[in-house]
Design a protein around this nucleic acid. Sequence first.
DNA 1: TATGAATGAGAGTTCATTCAT
DNA 2: GATGAATGAACTCTCATTCAT
Lengths: 218, 218, 218, 218
Amino acid sequence: MSSTTAGAATVELDPRRTQILRAALEVIAERGYGETRIADVAERVGVSPALVMYYFKTKDRLLAEAIRHAEDLWYADGTRVMEAIPTASGRLEALVRITCLSDEEVGPSDSWALWIDLWCQALRRPAVAAVREEFDAHWRETIRAVVHDGQAAGEFEPMDADEVAVALSALLDGLSIQIALHDPAVTEERAFATAMRFASRLLGFAWEPPEQVRRHRA
Amino acid sequence: MSSTTAGAATVELDPRRTQILRAALEVIAERGYGETRIADVAERVGVSPALVMYYFKTKDRLLAEAIRHAEDLWYADGTRVMEAIPTASGRLEALVRITCLSDEEVGPSDSWALWIDLWCQALRRPAVAAVREEFDAHWRETIRAVVHDGQAAGEFEPMDADEVAVALSALLDGLSIQIALHDPAVTEERAFATAMRFASRLLGFAWEPPEQVRRHRA
Amino acid sequence: MSSTTAGAATVELDPRRTQILRAALEVIAERGYGETRIADVAERVGVSPALVMYYFKTKDRLLAEAIRHAEDLWYADGTRVMEAIPTASGRLEALVRITCLSDEEVGPSDSWALWIDLWCQALRRPAVAAVREEFDAHWRETIRAVVHDGQAAGEFEPMDADEVAVALSALLDGLSIQIALHDPAVTEERAFATAMRFASRLLGFAWEPPEQVRRHRA
Amino acid sequence: MSSTTAGAATVELDPRRTQILRAALEVIAERGYGETRIADVAERVGVSPALVMYYFKTKDRLLAEAIRHAEDLWYADGTRVMEAIPTASGRLEALVRITCLSDEEVGPSDSWALWIDLWCQALRRPAVAAVREEFDAHWRETIRAVVHDGQAAGEFEPMDADEVAVALSALLDGLSIQIALHDPAVTEERAFATAMRFASRLLGFAWEPPEQVRRHRA
DNA sequence: TATGAATGAGAGTTCATTCAT
DNA sequence: GATGAATGAACTCTCATTCAT
């Protein structure tokens, strides 16, 4: 998994910038991209709207950078979790777990809203679209690498790892939507089980739905 | 699959209303839900903004009804296509085809944008959320019914039809996103093949990716 | 008390007109002159706004005629009450009573609101100002006539009847405002007593505040 | 008579606010409360309507504060005039004079329009009603205090000072209406004489209508 | 760096008024 | 006489953006 230079750039010299970006992400998650106002972000930081403009010149620029920042955070998080897990099937389960199950620390319920908004904005804003595409490519590559490792280690049956990555990431996206929208037909646990059953079948590894699904990090 | 009366409802009594709803859908697809202005819709119909208010009282109501209208159109379309197909596997393939492959008549590229926007709005607007949930339940029920029919006819292996519906609809949603966003890694054809391969494996029916995928209705 | 020709004109051939005028008065009393919309009046009558326009051509005209209509009603009412009372002091008391004390039949609380609105509109609208002036002149003349009759009959001391009319009508107007606005310092009974004490002193007739003030017509 | 701190409050810290409030009062007096538009006020000050919103957040708040401001001005004015007069009867006359006779400096003709509008708005807006009631209570208390002082000094006959305050303030209100509406039957001079005659009779002090009524401050 | 003051460009909504039927 | 459809002209309020300090 190649760490983007973007990630480095964000962990940057200027703490004010980062502070504003973090605030922007919170507001976007709460009110939605389209309803996010500069004044909201400024208020959250406790500064004047003019200062936000001073740092980011324009609202569009602020939001674009905020999204890129979110990406970086997500990856930093994911990488840390994955590095500690020895087996490929374990890592795969972790990926699915992170995607499907709520985490008390950083509520992914908010994250999901953010991703959906991301797709929505990407439809019309080329700048956002580029970020989104890069993000998804990265995500699929992560899955592909885990699959590849597992096949090399004999944990998974041989099959096109790219194909698995496309299918699994699409499935997870689809399930995330239902979770984010609190569809009564798709609870977090059910989504997790569905995705794991799908993956275990596809890759031919054993997996049993746990009695009581453990939340990750708990 | 129960044929909805939705199709009939669409051929409504008031042509002006329908005209405005159609225009609203076009504008939403082009500019996005959040960026859709009453004036845009009015201009497209060639009337004054006040007339749009006259018919729908408020912008929110207009947009809500527009979405409902889109749903009706989608189902009227789908129902018509499916009724003509005798085998369950054929109907299942048609469902996947409709979802993944562009149709020259009613550009689903527009539809996809609309659905993504729908999810996005549903995050925060309860009224939209209700429409979305109903729509998705209907869609899963459609899949479930086809699976059930196929199992009864011996075309498909026995397994929880609900589970298949949840998984397949999620997979299709996820693939749709990539298509809508024109992700270079997921062409329409690839999405179609991925979904069909998934379905055939799950339900144990034979399916071969065609040399040259035929567009439906072409 | 001379009956105006306006009164005759209002008890007119066209019942629709009268119906609309009555509705207009109700709406003005409830929502205020400035907030009265044609649509409100139309709705109350159960017809379309266009019909109201058909009858009155313009909103201003409707409201002006409505006010004139209110005047007519008020006088018809007042005249009827006064004719039955033999003594001048009795008639004077009736005038004060009508002005100050609520009547269950036609809530004067509404009437008062109407008069205050009338003054307010008269400030800026010449047409309304003319109606208002005529109305007040009539009202003062009514008082003057009662005073004159009482002096001729020896009930009242001789003094400038015009002057009394000006002073008493002003006092009643002022008290009405407090009543209309539900000022806790000026109850209806207190206003009544204040006005009567003033009149009896001025005109030198005996008057005792009743233990329990009787409502008129009760 | 307790000197209010209102006068001080008027010389506020923010000159822009005061400037806008003054402009608002002018516009209200000219066009009426209901017809006062933010744009009018802004134009009078020579700024953009958005700036008015910036200072007062909403139109209702602007108008409410404007009325409160008018009150302050009125009292600051009245207090200043009254403090210089030694006798109670002189002060009473001054009160009546201020109410009835035009002043070239601050045209009370405008003030009257404002008060009438105030009553009108108070009918339906609780916020305005509260301001109005407070204002009237203050006004009656002012009268009551003068009456009390005069009785203590032996200038006036003993009688219920509250009662006098209610009656006299009502009379003045009523006369003001006629003056504000330029009723030909009630000139400013006549109103003044009527009110003074009423007061002198009630309180038993000597008062002679002047040949040529002097305008105050002239 | 940080802000308060100021603005322009809309956006939705309201409503009297018109007109063909 | 009666209406539904249609419009134009406002009006309030929002918000990104600018600029002097």
